[in-house]
Amino acid sequence: MGLFDRFFRSRNVAGIARDTLEFALSSAEDTHPNEYMGFMRGTPAREFDLGEEIHPDDYVVTDVLVIPGTTSNEMSATVDNNMIPNDMRTVGSIHSHPNGVLRPSDADLATFTSGSVHVIMGAPYRTSDWRAFDQEGEPATLPVLDVDLDDPEAFFDFDQYDIDDELRSGDTY
């Protein structure tokens, strides 16, 4: 099992939080004309009041994790694999195409092998300027959900004890 295989686990993704999508679009616009790159993290749907249509074990994309040391230019973004944490909640990737093309490139397809959903955003980064894809690069449905998210600073409020406790619990976030 490789690093990416441990980092990404196939999960059913019910949707993406509106605030998370808006954050990613804004970040991509701020990075323009260079590519933006991040990893999408999910929270179990049972954490939100989403009704019976969504299975409680499905995930809602609630965070975008930008890896330190990521470099980008107008044609690509490169992640330093040594900096990727073993985050059990990662469900896929999100990146921008500054040229506005909302289709995966051959290079994108090579990175789509891990995770269950991948998002490409394109200039000018409006709420309609993105598409979701599955591992094979086929269009995927990713509804935008209105959910209340925790304080983003809470993401950083953990220590090694919390990590060890999550691993011991066998929870497969």
Rank of each mutant, 00 (worst) to 15 (best):
S114M: 03
D129C: 13
Q135F: 09
F112D: 03
A77K: 09
D63E: 15
M75N: 15
S76L: 10
S128M: 02
L149I: 04
A107K: 14
F133T: 02
F158M: 07
T71L: 09
V101N: 13
Y161A: 09
G137M: 08
R103S: 08
D106N: 12
S72R: 01
S76Y: 02
P104H: 06
S116G: 14
T78I: 08
D58I: 01
V64S: 02
V117I: 12
V147R: 02
M121S: 08
Q160A: 08
Q160G: 05
V147P: 12
L145P: 05
P124Y: 10
V64M: 10
R103T: 14
V66S: 04
T70I: 06
N99P: 00
V79N: 06
G100A: 14
A154F: 05
R103P: 00
D157W: 05
N86K: 15
D58Y: 08
F112R: 05
A140P: 02
P139I: 01
S116D: 14
M83K: 13
P139W: 03
P104V: 09
S116L: 06
E74F: 00
D57L: 15
L142N: 01
G69F: 00
V64W: 02
D134C: 01
P143M: 11
S128I: 10
T113I: 05
V64I: 15
S93V: 04
G115V: 06
V144D: 00
S76H: 07
S72W: 00
P124V: 11
F158P: 06
H97P: 00
V144M: 04
N99L: 09
T111N: 15
N99M: 07
D164I: 07
P68A: 06
A140E: 01
V147H: 02
A132R: 01
T90V: 14
N73R: 04
D58C: 07
P98H: 09
H118Y: 09
I120Q: 02
D146N: 14
M121F: 04
P124M: 13
P152D: 06
D129L: 08
D162T: 03
F156N: 12
S116N: 12
I163N: 03
E136R: 12
L65M: 09
R103A: 11
T62D: 06
E74H: 01
G69E: 09
T78L: 10
V91M: 12
N73S: 12
R131T: 03
I67T: 11
A107I: 13
N82G: 15
G92W: 11
D106H: 06
R103G: 01
S93F: 04
V60F: 08
T90H: 13
V101M: 10
T70D: 01
Q160D: 13
S128V: 07
P152G: 04
